[in-house]
């Protein structure tokens, strides 16, 4: 979707919301095809408790437990029957999983895989194994590391004291092992999403000797711990029937992805702690249309967010 279209659509949504306080039904979205299977391999367990997390992940949150190897296998096998294109592992922090190497190998047997991590647990041995896996795998293997500022104070205010240096050290080890991780930035501070803000990240990586920077910028979701930090959604920030044309439907990743956790199946990685978002026990239960009735759906629509790399 080009920028002009997006602006026009946002205006239309906001004007309509202002004119009518009547809540109207949410749009319905078919699953076109299961292109992407997300797996919440470590559930909500994380070694950090970032203030902007859209699910309240942390060392004490076990709302979603770690997935067993069998649970991951079962979801992958079912997705393969559907002709899945690619896999994503997230958490929590995926590298807290005791069998993470087995899980990575299982997924890569069937298709490309991206692992989302904060990078902190990546020591030299693990980095070296990841580098070998990247070179050996038949399909693309990508690692995505989240970094939320170009200075210690900017990042650590959201991620916790000392994390800026630890994250960058993890990135350095990945690069030394021959990987070129994608650095993901959540644009909690609006200026980070602008041209100059983005350029600072490219400059930071260049200073660290990363000559082929790969960056992804993501808008924050005002749910989970981020709701307590930055405030939640306004009433008008809801999608309503008629907001979506075909192009917008296709752009929403929930038209082509599902998320499986130890607790069941969900439309996407964002909604796993949202009331009523759970679609059933198994991936099979999620292979159907959804209602875009969550406030976070509004962010995906207006910001054009996709969790894919």
């Amino acid at each position: 979707m080009n920028k002009l279209d997006t602006r026009e659509l946002i205006q239309r949504v906001e004007q309509r919301a202002a004119l009518s306080s009547e809540p109207s039904a949410a749009p319905h979205l078919e699953l076109d095809h299961l292109d992407t299977l997300w797996l919440q391999v470590t559930g909500t367990l994380c070694n950090l408790a970032c203030l902007h997390c859209f699910i309240s992940c942390g060392p004490k949150n076990d709302n979603h437990d770690m997935m067993s190897v069998e649970q991951v296998d079962e979801a992958i096998d079912r997705a393969v029957e559907e002709g899945v294109k690619e896999f994503y592992f997230t958490g929590g922090e995926p590298f807290m999983h005791p069998d993470i190497e087995t899980l990575i190998e299982r997924a890569l047997r069937h298709g490309p895989l991206t692992v989302l991590t904060n990078g902190i647990l990546i020591d030299e041995d693990l980095a070296s194994w990841l580098g070998e896996t990247f070179r050996r795998a038949r399909y693309s293997f990508d690692v995505r590391v989240s970094l939320d500022g170009t200075t210690r104070s900017e990042n650590d205010a959201l991620r916790g004291r000392g994390t800026f240096e630890k994250i960058l050290a993890g990135i350095d080890r990945l690069v030394a092992a021959g990987l070129n991780p994608v650095i993901t930035v959540t644009t909690c501070h609006a200026e980070l999403g602008g041209r100059e803000g983005r350029q600072k990240f490219f400059d930071l990586l260049a200073e660290r000797g990363i000559q082929r920077p790969r960056l992804k910028f993501l808008a924050p979701f005002k749910i989970g711990r981020e709701e307590r930090r930055g405030g939640g959604y306004q009433d008008y920030e809801r999608l309503r029937k008629g907001d979506l044309d075909d192009q917008a439907r296709q752009a929403l990743q929930c038209s082509s992805c599902r998320m499986v956790t130890s607790e069941g199946v969900y439309p996407c990685p964002i909604l796993i702690e949202e009331k009523d978002a759970r679609m059933g026990d198994k991936l099979d239960d999620g292979l159907k249309a959804i209602e875009l009735d969550h406030p976070a759906c509004y962010t995906c629509f207006v910001e054009g967010v996709t969790c894919r790399t």
Binding site: H33, D35, V80, E81, E82, G83, V84, K85, E86, H110, G111, P112, Y139, S140, Q250
Partner: peptide, 23 residues
């Protein structure tokens, strides 16, 4: 299915390509 979809060698699983051909 899409004029601007990238089909890279490393990011297309066999089963996804089979799905595209089936459809």
């Amino acid at each position: 299915r899409r004029i601007n979809e990238f089909l890279w060698e490393s990011t297309c699983s066999d089963v996804f390509l089979a799905y595209l051909l089936d459809t």
